[in-house]
Amino acid sequence: MDNLNEQLKAQIIAALNMEGLSPADINDDALLFGDGLGLDSIDALELIVMLEQQYKIKIANPEEGQKIFKSINSLADFIRSKQA
């Protein structure tokens, strides 16, 4: 389980070119958007592309993305629900 979380952190860092960050800098439950990691609507679009490429999961409506991308945990839960 934790493997998916760590993998996601690395993939988010790569997708958003956050070269200076390491996976350890991101907490599983911390907010990815707004005050947490500071992601925004453009990053949501980027994460949608990442999900398509890495997990073959399509999110048609970018609005929907904001909920899924709340935290590393919520994103991992979403991916597991799609892969179940």
């Binding site: 958003l16 070119n17 956050m18 070269e19 200076g20 960050l21 947490g36 500071g38 992601l39 990053d43």
Partner: peptide, 26 residues
């Protein structure tokens, strides 16, 4: 990039959005 991160720490910044910026912006 490694130097910019060290400088970020030296300046005691707490600004997560920094890490999303491209190198020119950093």
């Amino acid at each position: 990039e490694v130097f910019f991160k060290a400088l970020y720490q030296y300046l005691k910044l707490e600004y997560p959005k920094f890490f999303k910026m491209d190198s020119l912006s950093k």
